[in-house]
Design a protein around this nucleic acid. Structure first.
Lengths: 137, 137
DNA sequence: AGTAAATTTGCAACAATGATGCAATATTTT
DNA sequence: AAAATATTGCATCATTGTTGCAAATTTACT
């Protein structure tokens, strides 16, 4: 697999086994992953700490982005190519299926702008929709 | 204070000190609170477990609702009066201030509907906007 | 009001999640 | 290939969330 190497090099990160494996998992799964998902799916389990640090690094570099949840389990998903360190462009809606529990990036659904009350200055917006996904309905 | 008693009775919950104190704190603070916020602000600290269980109960009864975050710290906020157990109507936008870190319910800002890809059935939506709030800007 | 039944609380113990320092290892640079 | 740099894994610890159970409180009943 060459793609993971490229992603790492583009972001000036050392190319290590752990990073490649975690990236491959993201590419393979398509959707969003929680820390726990990653640990479960790792064939020859990496150290827990390494997973934490890798995810942090990826977020900082803009390789993955965070998805808010109401269940104390942050999800992470790969960013589209136009994300730069500290400057994400992932203003798309996320979908969480009530049935299969998968979190899906709806890359083509843009978060609509909302009119805020006087005095509020928006900087960033997140939107999460729950319901039934394509596969479950 | 009579209001907290009423809220509890309306939801057929036993009227206990802990529940009243936590409700009063929500009424007092106005905004959203995390579990940690509640523990910090409790004059004669309640047991941690009691706080967890009380929040769970309140969510189940529709007295408070959850606000998703990307930092592993669920926030809770009082629901408007038209919420029933298992049947919330809190489809308003939440605002998190980057400066003072407060989470505010924008009760008058309704979450806009979005067009989902074919096959997706929406059930519920959450929207969180970050930026600067009235007090910080 | 007083008592029995039902509910809630607090404690103890535990599980899961996340963070940090440091030596060993792997990667990059020269 | 060796030196410099960066990453990993281990040990340890802090925080957060859960569960079982006895004691205490609240509610319902007479």
């Amino acid at each position: 697999m060459k793609k993971t190497i490229d992603i790492l090099k583009q972001n000036r990160l050392s190319v290590t086994d752990s990073r490649q494996k975690i990236l491959e998992l993201f590419l393979l799964m398509g959707g969003a992953l929680s820390h726990a998902d990653i640990e479960k799916n790792m064939p020859d389990s990496l150290d827990r700490v390494t997973v934490y640090r890798t995810l942090q690094t990826f977020v900082e570099k803009g390789i993955i982005h965070l998805i808010p949840t109401t269940d104390n389990s942050i999800k992470y998903a790969l960013c589209k190519n136009d994300c730069a360190p500290g400057h994400h462009h992932d203003n798309h809606v996320h979908f969480i299926c009530d049935e299969c529990e998968k979190t899906i990036c709806l890359d083509d659904v843009t978060i609509p702008a909302v009119k805020l009350p006087k005095g509020f200055t928006p900087q960033h917006a997140e939107m999460v929709v729950t319901g039934l996904c394509v596969d479950c309905k």
